[in-house]
């Protein structure tokens, strides 16, 4: 059963060197690679961090913005990552644990946390990020915000890609059927085929293809935050699988 074992998720020695593996192994936080990695990750994931400060720790808008900046700045300090325990394999779990410690440290230091010289500059535009979560726990809300962030970027990338290829129709179909179905519209494959002037087989094939590509786009981003292919699939399940309470 050797084949089956591998296919079911053995370790993958060829896992690429991602932003997160680089951060974890970096010796020198002053290295340009290191900062670039943090900036790259911060650009995608500052939103859930900001929302978490507001939601779990009750920070005001201004405070939460400041703290988000400080948090990613602190990430640029080598000693910050030193606290990383080896079992926190994933960027998200690490951030989760680091966030609350960061808040406590900040409370303790009375806001005198020093900022690193190479802090990434985030343009923080907060409208619409922070919504009170309908009964979700702060941790669950953080997970969902994280998922929304990565999905946001992936959808944008996909739309641009389909435009470049001149396949707007496929993406439009996907939008209509999967992303933002119009209320009350007939969304059967036959109706969609008629509406877009194509066949039912085409509709099912196109949908299948866009969905597959969306998953690949999301997975690519997720890989940036983990250290193995197995973890990447696990992360996908955690981000997008059903909550245990549902």
């Amino acid at each position: 059963m050797g084949d089956a074992d591998t296919a079911m998720g053995g370790c993958d020695p060829s896992f690429p060197r991602t932003r997160w593996t680089l951060l974890r192994s970096a010796a020198d936080p002053e290295a340009p690679d290191y900062r670039a990695s943090i900036e790259g990750l911060a650009a995608t994931y500052w939103r859930p961090v900001y929302a978490h400060f507001r939601r779990k720790w009750g920070k005001t808008n201004e405070d939460a913005k400041d703290m988000t900046q400080e948090f990613f700045a602190a990430l640029c300090e080598k000693d910050f990552l030193d606290g990383l325990s080896p079992d926190q394999g994933r960027f998200r779990s690490y951030i989760m644990a680091a966030l609350d410690n960061f808040v406590r440290r900040r409370h303790r230091d009375d806001g005198r946390l020093k900022r690193g010289g190479g802090a990434p500059r985030l343009s923080i535009e907060c409208a619409g990020i922070f919504e009170p979560s309908g009964g979700d726990s702060p941790d669950r809300a953080f997970l969902r915000d994280w998922a929304r962030s990565v999905l946001d970027e992936s959808l944008e990338e996909l739309e641009a890609r389909y435009q470049d290829r001149g396949m707007e129709k496929a993406f439009r179909l996907f939008r209509l059927h999967d992303v933002e179905p119009e209320a009350g519209a007939d969304l059967s494959y036959a109706a969609l085929a008629e509406r877009l002037g194509t066949t039912v087989t085409d509709v099912t094939n196109l949908l299948y293809r866009v969905r597959k590509e969306l998953r690949e786009a999301v997975l690519r981003r997720v890989r940036d935050t983990v250290t193995s292919e197995e973890e990447a699939e696990e992360e996908m399940r955690e981000l997008f699988g059903r909550a245990p309470s549902e």
Partner: peptide
């Protein structure tokens, strides 16, 4: 979209 993404 989550059900499309959770599993490969």
């Amino acid at each position: 979209l989550a059900p499309l993404l959770a599993f490969d």
